[in-house]
Design a protein around this nucleic acid. Structure first.
Lengths: 110, 110
DNA sequence: GTACTATATCCGTATATCCGAATATAAGGA
DNA sequence: TCCTTATATTCGGATATACGGATATAGTAC
């Protein structure tokens, strides 16, 4: 046991694999402030597409495209309700991760 | 108080502002698995550039460029030690955020 | 000064991303 | 059926990102 940094670098292959999934499923979706804001706005209760595009003041096509990315990455799920489609968070744990980030940037150092 | 989703959307302007900083300082840096892996590898104890480029098996120029991005975004700080430069996390809280993400993708739903 | 090591920057090219108007699809009501 | 509303997809072009070889810079030792 001479390795000075055990946990993080012991099993680098496993870490790489996990990071690949972290990136594909979470970090990719967080490129650009718009999709981050969308996750906050969808929140624990879900939102319809038109609510989201109005709240964020962006064209409907843009909202739909960003939502599609969140869906492809597995962060949100959809449920049709008549002609509307409701977007919900697949796993609300993403909210606590985003809150952590928010705390991190709104504090003068921790 | 008729708003059904109080906290997240009450003060949208403040949220937008915070998200701008979250994106600039954290999310931007997490584009691409390489920089995420770098943060893990730097860990709580810091690493030299050559250690990082060797561990990750990437050219030195590539490592240096990615580290420069992490530094510009404020996630890491540098300290010269002789001819080498040691990179350290500015705020180790990023590690718990990354661990949370890792947990989120390595569990079958929470 | 020269030589050596460690790190940073420059460069061109390939690829990816973003945007929004326009158009397509899908469901509901007359 | 036709019309309306809600959402998704297509398209082209501007911009951004990634990569790594080559080169530049900074420090150490002699």
């Amino acid at each position: 046991m001479e390795n000075p940094q055990p946990d993080t670098t012991h099993n680098l292959d496993q870490l790489r694999e996990d990071i690949e999934r972290m990136h594909d499923q979470i970090c990719y979706a967080l490129r650009g402030p718009v999709r981050i804001l969308m996750l906050f706005v969808i929140g624990a209760e879900g939102r319809y597409v038109n609510e989201i595009s109005e709240l964020l003041d962006i064209p409907q096509s843009t909202a739909s495209r960003h939502l599609a990315i969140l869906r492809e990455r597995g962060l949100v799920e959809t449920e049709r309700q008549g002609t509307s489609i409701k977007y919900r968070l697949t796993n609300v744990h993403i909210l606590s991760i985003l809150d952590d980030m928010r705390r991190m940037v709104t504090q003068e150092k921790s």
